[in-house]
């Protein structure tokens, strides 16, 4: 078993979802961004309400309290589990099975920030994320939630221009995927490396003058292009 950060969830429809939990570094950075935003808004509230004297300061305190406690809940429920900081880092909060986070779970995980914050600045939270397999802090463990990386559609849309050519052997699904990936990554690989990679497929490219181009043609054929 090769090491990876991902874990798999099987849906009732029989689809295996590969989920990738986010670790302490992206989460810390996302939290720092959120902290900056909250600090900015708090400052603004105080400055604006300070003109109203002690009543204004009282109001400001209440508003800041609400901001501190319900900022993450609000955003997690309103925008697919992403606070602005998480959006920046492309991570989101979800249940362990990747279903959208429920209000109860969001409230639980954010109220338990107090515990994660202990003894100071998320010491326990850090220990918990470093020790748990899915990088969960204590609030996550209690609410059964996890912070996941949003997968990016990086290459899937890239066109393959080569003219289709059928392969002379039957190929398994992972092999077909590797061939298509190879063709899609044409722009990011040097020509020499492409030829070298193509040589690894041995008899698939035997006696071809340009093995890499041949593999791209097969990939094009696999994607269902017509000649």
């Amino acid at each position: 078993m090769r090491l990876d950060t991902t874990y798999t969830v099987n849906t009732p429809e029989g689809i295996a979802l590969e989920l990738s939990p986010a670790g302490p570094v992206p989460r810390t950075l996302a939290w720092l961004v959120d902290l900056m935003i909250r600090a900015g808004v708090s400052l603004l509230i105080i400055i604006l309400l300070a003109f109203m004297g002690s009543l204004g300061i009282g109001l400001a305190m209440i508003l800041i309290f609400l901001l501190e406690w319900f900022y993450p809940v609000w955003f997690e429920l309103r925008s697919q589990g992403q606070t602005p900081g998480k959006r920046l880092l492309n991570i989101y909060v979800a249940h362990l099975d990747a279903s959208p986070i429920s209000p109860a779970a969001s409230v639980v995980r954010n109220l338990l920030r107090v515990v994660d914050f202990l003894p100071f600045f998320y010491g326990f939270g850090l220990a918990s994320t470093l020790l748990s397999k899915r990088f969960q802090r204590l609030g996550d463990l209690a609410a059964n939630t996890v912070v996941l990386h949003k997968s990016l559609p990086v290459l899937s849309q890239r066109e393959i221009s080569a003219s289709p050519e059928p392969a002379n052997v039957s190929l398994s699904l992972p092999e077909q995927q590797a061939l298509i990936l190879f063709a899609q990554r044409e722009a990011t690989l040097t020509a020499e490396r492409q030829q070298e990679l193509a040589q690894f497929t041995a008899s698939l490219v035997n006696h071809k003058t340009d093995p890499a181009a041949h593999l791209r043609s097969i990939a094009s054929w696999l994607l269902g292009k017509q000649a």
Partner: peptide, 23 residues
């Protein structure tokens, strides 16, 4: 940069085909 993932997949593919063709 070097498409290690593709190299691994192609190596497996090549090995399988070589086994098939016994070359």
């Amino acid at each position: 940069l070097e498409a290690w993932d593709i190299e691994l997949a192609f190596r497996n593919l090549g090995e399988r085909l070589t086994q098939l063709a016994k070359t």
